[in-house]
C-alpha cells in the first residue's frame, strides 16, 4: 500500500488537481495507454498510469471508481481534462518518467497490485 502523497514523492510528480486525496491509500496500479485494457482490470484502490491524454482517460476512471491518474512522459493534460477530473473528485498527477519506469518505481516501493481478479 502507498499513500498518494508517497506516490507523488516517489515519482517526483506534480499534483495538478485533487490535493484532497493525498492521504488516500492505493493498493494496486495499472499501466496502459488503451482504455479498454484498463477496463478489463478491476481492482480496488487503483492508480492509473498512462501516456494517453484525453478526456476519456478521466471518463474511464469515473466508470471504474479510480481516484488517481498519473500522466507519464512529462505529459500535461489540458484544462478541460483537469476540470473534468475536478468535477469527478479525481486526483491528477504528472511525472517526467516514462510508463515503464513509473510502474517499476511504484512496484519497487510495494505497489504489487494483488487484487480481486488475482
Amino acid at each position: 500500500m502507498l499513500k498518494v502523497r508517497e506516490i507523488v514523492d516517489i515519482l517526483d510528480a506534480q499534483v495538478l488537481v485533487g490535493e484532497e486525496n493525498l492521504e488516500l491509500e492505493i493498493y494496486s496500479g495499472c499501466g496502459a495507454d488503451l482504455m479498454s485494457d484498463v477496463m478489463a482490470f478491476v481492482k480496488e484502490s487503483v492508480i492509473l498510469c498512462t501516456g494517453l491524454v484525453n478526456p476519456q482517460v478521466v471518463r474511464t476512471c469515473e466508470m471504474m471508481d479510480i481516484k488517481v491518474i498519473c500522466f507519464v512522459r512529462g505529459k500535461v493534460p489540458g484544462e478541460n481534462i483537469v476540470e473534468l477530473a475536478r468535477e469527478m473528485g479525481i486526483t491528477v498527477l504528472t511525472t517526467k518518467h516514462p510508463l515503464f519506469i513509473t510502474c517499476g518505481k511504484l512496484y519497487d516501493a510495494g505497489l504489487v497490485g494483488k487484487g480481486v481478479w488475482d
Binding site: D33, L34, M35, S36, D37, M39, A40, L52, N54, Q56, V57, T60
Partner: peptide, 27 residues
C-alpha cells in the same frame, strides 16, 4: 474474441479499439 478489433488507427490513438469492448461487456 479478446484482442480482435476493426478499429481505425485514429480510434486507437484515442485509446480505444483494443479489441476488449465486447469481451468486457460480456464479462
Amino acid at each position: 474474441t479478446a484482442g480482435w478489433s476493426t478499429a481505425s488507427e485514429t480510434v486507437r490513438e484515442l485509446g480505444f479499439g483494443a479489441g476488449m469492448g465486447l469481451p468486457n461487456m460480456k464479462r
